[in-house]
Amino acid sequence: VSSEIYQWVRDELKRAGISQAVFARVAFNRTQGLLSEILRKEEDPKTASQSLLVNLRAMQNFLQLPEAERDRIYQ
């Protein structure tokens, strides 16, 4: 997982004009609270716990989908 993931998520929230709650639900089936905590802490993926890595990997995989497909999912 790239250490850029945190910025990618922030950029996607702005680009798509969606809330953290929507992104958390569709990208990795978690709550806004968890996403907020992940973004606030910005732990280095190289030293992250296994559970954090699973979530970061799910977010990264979601962000690799084509933009149009992500936008459809947000609706």
Rank of each mutant, 00 (worst) to 15 (best):
Q50G: 13
W8G: 15
S51H: 09
E43L: 07
R40G: 08
Q60C: 09
V22P: 07
Y6D: 03
G33R: 11
L63C: 04
S51D: 13
Q64C: 11
V9E: 00
L35I: 06
V9N: 03
W8N: 15
V9M: 08
E69Q: 14
R72N: 07
K46Q: 12
R57Q: 14
S19E: 06
R25Q: 15
N61T: 11
R15M: 01
Q75D: 08
L63Q: 05
N61R: 11
G17C: 15
I38R: 00
S2A: 08
D71I: 04
L13T: 03
Q7L: 15
Q60W: 06
V26C: 07
E42V: 05
D44R: 04
L53E: 09
G17T: 06
I73A: 14
T31Q: 13
K46H: 13
D71E: 06
L52M: 12
Q20D: 07
P66C: 04
S36T: 12
L52T: 13
L34S: 14
G17Y: 07
R30I: 05
Y6L: 02
F23D: 02
N55H: 13
N61K: 11
L13V: 15
K41H: 12
R30S: 14
E12G: 05
S2T: 15
L35W: 05
S3N: 14
S51N: 14
E69P: 01
S51V: 08
E67F: 05
S2D: 08
N29M: 06
Q75C: 15
N55L: 09
L34P: 11
D44C: 12
F23Y: 04
R40N: 07
K41F: 04
F23K: 03
A58W: 04
A21S: 13
A48F: 03
E43S: 07
P66H: 06
F28V: 04
A16L: 02
I5F: 01
L56P: 00
F28K: 03
Y74C: 02
Q64M: 13
R57F: 09
T47Q: 14
G33H: 13
K46M: 12
S51F: 07
D44W: 00
A21E: 14
R25I: 05
S51C: 10
S49K: 10
M59W: 04
R25S: 13
L52S: 09
W8S: 15
L56Q: 03
L39F: 02
S36K: 12
L13K: 01
F62C: 01
M59F: 08
R70C: 04
L35F: 07
A68G: 13
K14S: 15
S49Q: 11
R70M: 01
Q50W: 07
S36L: 07
E67C: 11
F62V: 04
N61C: 11
G33D: 11
I38E: 03
N29W: 03
L13I: 15
L63Y: 01
K41L: 10
K41R: 11
D44T: 07
L35R: 02
L56T: 01
Q75H: 14
Q20T: 08
E69G: 05
N55V: 11
Y74F: 04
Y6P: 03
R30Q: 07
Q50D: 14
Y6C: 01
E42Q: 08
F62G: 01
D71A: 03
